[in-house]
Amino acid sequence: MRIKPRIVDVFVRISLNLQAFFTVGILAVIVAIIFIKGSPYINLEFIISSPQDMGRHGGIFSTIVGTILLVLLSIFLATPLGVGTAIFLTEYTKESVFTKVIRFGVESLAGIPSILFGLFGFIFFVTKLKMGWSLLAGVLTTTIMILPTIIRTSEEAIKAVPRSLRIVSYSLSATKWETVKKVVLPSAAPGILTGVMLSVGRAVGETAAIIFTMGSSLRMPLSLMDSGRTMAVHFYILAREGISMENAYATALILVLSILSINILAYYIMNRVISKFS
């Protein structure tokens, strides 16, 4: 018996609907579980006191500091590099073999899994350059890892700036760099900011690349050469070594909440930009 196409159509529509909502449901379930299991153990004390007894007791303050230091320093290095690369690719060159090679480099870097960044950071920064497990080695590794995201989002943001604005700027006697600085970058800034924030999200949640470069010392990192532990690494160790489920869930909650709020803010900025240009 042949099923009527119209009936198939209705069936497909329902099925696709269900799948899409099932997928969103996964996100909702993950967030819900973490929230329900983690929230009872979260209080101010947990946030502002440092871990004791391997994290079995106490809070996570030193790992929050570790995370913030790692992320801020990485962003501080990666943003000028990434935005500069995007400016070079969009404003200073025409499409050529040269730009293709650079783009190939960026795409390849974007595809390398974090464990290989960890492996590289471990042998190059930690071992060969004798930095040891340190904040510095973690920062440099993370910088390289988030660079492609910043380059790609910045490039898109810069390309979205209308050409006519550049022409007007040149006609008003601006040089190329003056035009980039005064017209292109201010217009592209929200888009660039979105890319930077997505990278922050990635760095906050990263484990594999960081554990082998920054190490996992629970002490507060006070200098660039100190080892330290990020929230994600702390959570991994708590969960994997079964140190404390309560603290694991509580750490996961703070981790997930911070990443989600950063990402939601990033999408919010991006949407405002899209509606501004259209």
Partner: peptide
């Protein structure tokens, strides 16, 4: 679409350690 697309992209933001743990 305005609701679903960002929600789906947020899945990418959940750290892999959290997926592993759950």
């Amino acid at each position: 679409k305005m609701f679903l697309k960002p929600a789906l992209e947020l899945l990418a933001g959940i750290p892999s350690v959290v997926y592993g743990f759950l």
